[in-house]
Every structure is written in structure tokens, then in C-alpha cells.
Design a protein around this nucleic acid. Sequence first.
RNA 1: CGCGGGGUAGAGCAGUAGCAGCUCGCCAGGCCCAUAACCUGGAGGUCGUGGGUGCAACUCCCACCCCCGCAACCA
Length: 477
Amino acid sequence: MSKKFYITTAIPYVNAAPHIGFALELIQTDAVARYHRQKGDEVFFLTGTDENSLKNVLAAEKEGLTVQKFVDRNTKRFIELGKVLNISNNDFIQTTAKKHFIGCQKLWQATKSKDIYKKKYKGLYCVGCEQFYAEKELVDNKCPEHQTKLQVVEEENYFFRLSAYQDKLKKLIKSDEYQIMPASRKNEVLSFIEMGLEDFSISRSQARAKNWGVPVPGDQSQVMYVWYDALSNYITALDYDRNGKNFKKFWPADVHIIGKGIIRFHAVYWPVMLLSAGLPLPKKLFVHGYINIAGEKMSKSLGNVVDPFVLVEKYGSEVVRYYLLRYIHPVQDSDFSLEKLEAAYQADLANGLGNLVSRVAGLIEQNKVKIKQDKQDKQDKQFDQIIESFSFDQALKYIWDKIAALDSLITTTKPWELAKAGKKAELSKILNQAANGIFQISQLLKPFLPQTAEKIEKIFTTKQIKKGEPLFPRFEK
RNA sequence: CGCGGGGUAGAGCAGUAGCAGCUCGCCAGGCCCAUAACCUGGAGGUCGUGGGUGCAACUCCCACCCCCGCAACCA
């Protein structure tokens, strides 16, 4: 019996080229999606881009392009990133899509009328940050980020009655009805809620938004606050606008995967928006950590931004996938470095997996042993449990322990001696065991390293097993 | 008194009361089937600091020091 499984990444805004952090999110999400497909679930995996952010408008202005041209061009890079990383998403939402606009407006209208109200707001606004600042936050009366003077903006906006949902939301999260993982993030959210939720603005004036964004239904002077529209992507992509069959089938989401920076929107705003509109809540929110470079935050000003395209070009997608899943901690921040990536390649992929495959395939080829496929599907509860908890690093460790066990098996049973001694039956038994062990490894590996898994599968399912080329040649010193 | 995460072998991490562990790196031995790969063993840590509770503390309690985030719109 197949279950439906709906999984999403966050949608990054496209004012700059995609960076390695988003690559991590794509790869993690892809691993979970592929895992569920392998289990026979009907999977819908969504990713996309947020094109309505004012930051896009500002970036476009800088380059002298129309906003639409700018976002189209930049979104291409994100689509391209998915391709080069071999990401198996079923759809890619761009929030300038018509169905997204209509869907957002439908959600707005479905929201309980008492939850949306108009309020005058006056504050100091920084266009660069796209945000209001409190006076005590300023440095020399200037924006702490941009060192520019702030504008006094006064306008009437729509507000959402978040405060009314405080108790209800707390209960839903505490009980794991909407499960936030890991637990430390759940606690963080709960303590945030306990501090008290304030109503938040869900629109801005057309002028301030520079006429870019989703218009508020029935009020041409306002566009939706970009997060209101961005979060809606998870349902608009499923054709919520016309209550399409994907929406009926796949909503609510089984998992949203996001980075720690946007936890509030997903853990607080989004569920409440849905509650007010009478829609079911997503089941899980998984929050991953960030990638640091030599202990420092990645940033353009530091000049330490890692370009995922360059990595893939140099090492290949499988190596990048492996490194990010195995050595970037799923929930804590971790350091990224080329040295570590290369060490992982050499030790785990070349010496470990690659060598084992050559080793066993070579022994089989030389001794012309017949391999009988062990066809039965091995259930592995422990492995399932590891993946359910998003412990990608441990999942790979688990697989690599099996690789080591097979190496150890070969070393201790010495098939080459059995061959010399003419002990055919015993030789065949050992090599069958090894071959089937590798086959099993390839199955476990599929969600993580799909291409490599397939190559291994091919080698060990052909009639005449041949050694062939190394999967991961060692780097020359 | 803002909130959170962290400080365990050269590096990266696991370990929540009972002889301090894993991976990489390093050293020695074995093997010779394999991509100079693989296997075994070894060196290397007063578990941030100071107190407390316990028969027993990396693990619980208290205080302090250091690092890194967040503090309503950054993957």
C-alpha cells in the first residue's frame, strides 16, 4: 500500500547566486524524497524560488534590468543547481506564477475576517534591509547594517491577529501535532511563543513595495507582505487556486525542510495562517544548521562564499552530495573546507566504497564465480529509524560500517588462498556473501548517491561480473 | 540579570552516573585479492575552570571563563 508523501524545501530569494547552504537543503530534501520513493510512497517533492522579495527589485535596479527579467535570469541558476546536483524534485514553483498569485489571494480571502484588520503604522524604515528599526537599534541614527539614513514611513497596513492564536499554537507544537525537529528547535519556538506573540503586518503599500508583489484582494493600494506570499507557495504549487487534484491529494505537507534562519515564519506564522483559513497543518518541520567557512559565517564581504557549481564541476555531484550529507551536521552548524572534502573523498569514496567494489568484482571475475542474487528485500528497521530522524550523517556512517565489515570478511577468509587451494565451494560462498552484501549497500545508498548506487547495482547484477573502471579514482598527490 | 547552542586525543565528532569512545591523520606489524588500497595493533585526552552531592561525576547541582549564533522578516 503506497502512501502519499509531500516534502518541500524553502524557497530562497534570487537576488544573488545560489550558495552552498541551499545546495545542502536541496540534497537533504532529495535524500528523504528518494528514500520514500524507494519505499513505494507516492512522493511530491517541491522546491522553487521566492521572486517577490523587494530585495530582488533592488538588485534588479542595480543591474538596470526589469525585475521580471532579473528574476527569470536568476531563477534559472537555481533550477540549474537542482539539475547539476541531481535533485529529483517533481515541481519547481516560481512565486511570480499566475497560479501562485491567485492562490495567495484565495488564501487571504479564506482567512477569518476577524483575523485581518487595518492599522496605521509609523516607523523608521531601511530600504536596504527592507525592514523597520526601533530607535534603540540605530547606530548614529543610521541603519546598523547599511549605515544609511532611515526614512520615516507612515502608512496603513493590514495586520494579522497572530496574538489570538498563541495558546492554540503552543498546544499544537507541544503535542507534536505540528512536530518541530530537532527538539532543541521545538523548545526555542515554544519559549518564543511564551514570550508573547504580537500581531504582524501582512501587507505594505504599493509604493514601498515598488509595485512588485501580490496585490491584496480588494485593495489595489496594498501588496502582500513577502513572507505571507512566500509561505503560501507550499499550497499554491499544488494548485490550491483551483482546488486541484494535487492539493487534495498531497496537502498537508509531510515535511518542510528549512534552515534555522527562517524558523519563526514556518513554526509560527505559517501554521497560524493555515489555521485561520481552515486548512490542515503540515506534519513536520525539520530545521537544518548552517555551513560555516573556517568557523566564520559565509558572507560576500568576507569573500569566503563557496559556489556549489564550482564544487560540482570539480568533484562531481555525487562527491558533493556525499560530503554534505556525511560531514555537515544535520542540525548543528558545521565547517566546510575543501581539505575535508578531499579527505572524505580519498578515505571513504576511493579507499572505502570504490576499492571494495573493485576488490570484490575483481575476485569474482578472476575466479569466474557465479553469483546468485539474493532477491529478498531486506527490511532494515534501524536504518529506517535513522532516516526518519533526519540523521543523514549517521545513515552514511551506518552504511560505511557495512563496507568495513565486508573488507574485514575478505581479509579474514582470504578468497585468493581458497582459489589456490581449489576450494571452489567455499570460495563461491564467500564471494556470494560479499557480492550480495555490496548489492544491499547499493540499495541503502540509493537515496544519497543515486548514480553511484546504480553503477554498483549494474556491476553486480550482470551475468559476467567485471571489475571495470574505478568508481572513485584516488587523487594523485 | 535577554534567549539558545557549544567547549571531550592533532582535526572533526559520539557519549547523560559505573573501567573515556568513533572517524580522519600519525606510528608499527600483517596481507598481497583490490584504486600504494585492505586488516590488526599502538601512541595521543587531568572530558573549559572552581566548588558541591554521590560508594562512584564527562554525565547531576551551583558559580565562573571562553567561542558561536539569535534578538520578528538571512539556507
